[in-house]
Write a protein that binds this DNA or RNA. Structure first.
Length: 478
RNA sequence: GCUCCCAUCGUCUAGCCCGGUCUAGGACAUCGCCUUUUCACGGCGGUAACAGGGGUUCAAAUCCCCUUGGGAGUACCA
């Protein structure tokens, strides 16, 4: 049987980081098994679903490099791929179930339903449907109401038996009898409910494996019931552990950035995000930590999912991002970095070789593309200098005063835009021998005199990249 | 409440299925040292975990049970 998997987001918000991970696992699983990855939009909740969210989610998926074979914008043979466009299909199946006596029309009002639940809770019973409409003797009355144009919901008659789910991740899960009561298939407004359309679609779209969040585990019993009623073979299921926040609660807005979009805006590399997400609940057989997802697709194995929920914590993601930045080819790195530098920045007025040197100088020190401009401004162009205690200390040394005087004399008489590497080396050598300094006083004194900072890249690499007039200006402060 | 799921360093995890090779391995973070000063990179090293209790066994992180803790579901949301 050919492998077909799907990701089925609801367009009720931006793409959630947890959703992105689920999509990723499906994508990887399809790739590993030479299967197809289908994207289906679950927009049956009319009030919350918005087309703009759908568009943004597809866009973000694309940004992450998670591409699908079939979807609303890539029609295949089993469309349409938006549930809102499939309501007739669901109704048809629901009616068939009613005809077979496996479901029934229910005309209870919200108030009646509410009362039923309260009563059950009070008596310590599970809050299941106990309305009269499930009884055959009222079928005729229901038919009359229907004929008279009254709106009723279609409710599924939950069989009184236990169900067993052989889950790829959880193993054998037994759902005892009486776990759920009769549930709604089609709402009185004619729209289907998740558990129903999910099954119909997975069946019609020939989905072979369902990989989804553990929050759906309990839904499975309802879905299994429907497959049974439809006489259809259920797909195999893999319920992946959930992503949670530091407080071990379900990931939500208050845990900070939970939408994929924000990572895009903060200049994270999609390859890094996806690399990190992949490792949150799945492990590489060789414990490799840094990889491109397409490189591991062929070894992706659903047996390596972990069962426990993972805390979503940004620290490691930052590191992964830095690693991905460093592995970028030179020209792409340059291109990406430049996207995050202001158009009128000093950087763009410099020569290509200068740009290259500067990128080489900083690329190992940044975790984000947006860090580059910061480094440039602080380490090279000396804006935003913070007077630290350490800096004050170095400034107070007599040797520092000697160094700055010496440098001022040497550098003031040099013309040009930059100091060459050789020029700097010579000056530095002279400084060393003339003043007889070494170690910390020498290096720190020179650094502070020339950059105004107590830290930064290797002096020999850094100084020749600082415009000469900046150096002169700096020295004139002493 | 009821049902289901989960439980290894602060965090992500390997190991668990097929008990001994585990005085529990890796990574992030953290700390220390080295890399002629700093930051970073790199290298080396340190701190740090099998939730608790019972079994089974010559032997348990690994198998079984209980407790505790956490999570999910219990909708005419998805």
């Amino acid at each position: 049987m050919s492998v077909r998997v799907r990701f089925a987001p609801s367009p009720t918000g931006y793409l959630h980081i947890g959703g992105a991970r689920t999509a990723l696992y499906n994508y990887l699983f399809a790739k590993a098994n030479n299967g197809k990855f289908i994207l289906r939009v679950e927009d049956t909740d009319l009030e919350r679903s918005k087309r703009e969210y759908e568009e943004s989610q597809l866009e973000d998926l694309n940004w992450l490099g998670i591409t699908y074979d079939e979807g609303p914008d890539k029609p295949g043979d089993v469309g349409p791929y938006r549930q809102s466009e499939r309501t007739e299909i669901y109704k048809e199946y629901a009616k068939k179930l009613v005809d077979q006596g496996l479901a029934y029309y229910d005309f209870c009002s919200d108030e009646e339903l509410e009362k039923m639940k309260e009563q059950a809770m009070k008596e310590g019973r599970p809050p299941h449907y106990t309305g009269k409409w499930r009884n055959e003797e009222f079928f005729e009355e229901a038919a009359n109401k229907l004929a008279a144009g009254e709106k009723g919901a279609i409710r599924f008659k939950a069989p009184k038996k236990s169900y067993i789910l052989q889950d790829e991740v959880r193993g054998r899960v037994v759902f005892p009898e009486n776990m759920v009561g009769d549930f709604v298939l089609i709402r009185s407004n004619g729209l289907p409910v998740y558990n129903f359309c999910c099954v119909i679609d997975d069946m019609l779209m020939k989905i072979s494996h369902v990989i989804r969040g553990e929050d759906h585990l309990n839904n499975s019993v309802r879905q299994l019931m429907i497959y049974d009623a439809l006489n259809a073979e259920p797909p195999s299921f893999a319920h992946v552990s959930l992503l949670i926040g530091k407080d071990r609660q379900k990931l939500s807005k208050r845990h900070g950035a939970t939408s994929t979009r924000l990572y895009k805006e903060e200049s994270y590399l999609p390859s890094a995000l996806v690399n990190y997400l992949c490792l949150l609940g799945w492990s590489h057989p060789d414990e490799k930590e840094i990889f491109r997802i397409d490189d591991i697709a062929h070894i992706f194995d659903s047996k390596r999912f972990s069962k426990a929920a993972a805390i979503y914590d940004l620290e490691k993601l930052k590191w992964v991002n830095g690693m991905h930045i460093r592995s970028l080819p030179e020209d792409i790195l340059k291109e990406e970095i430049e996207k995050f530098i202001k158009e009128d920045h000093f950087y763009f007025k410099q020569s290509d070789s200068w740009k290259k040197s500067v990128i080489d100088l900083f690329k190992n020190q940044i975790e984000f593309f947006s860090d580059f401009e910061k480094r440039l401004n602080e380490d090279l162009l000396h804006s935003n200098i913070v007077k630290t205690e350490k800096l004050e200390e170095v400034l107070s040394w007599d040797t520092t005063k000697q160094i700055s005087d010496f440098l001022k004399n040497k550098i003031d008489i040099i013309d040009g835009e930059y100091l060459s590497k050789n020029q700097f080396q010579e000056i530095f050598k002279a400084l060393k021998s003339d003043l007889g300094l070494k170690g910390k006083p020498l290096f720190m004194g020179t650094r502070v005199s020339l950059t105004g900072q107590d830290h930064g890249p290797e002096l020999g690499d850094l100084i020749p990249l600082i415009p000469l007039n900046f150096l002169k200006k700096r020295l004139s402060n002493f």
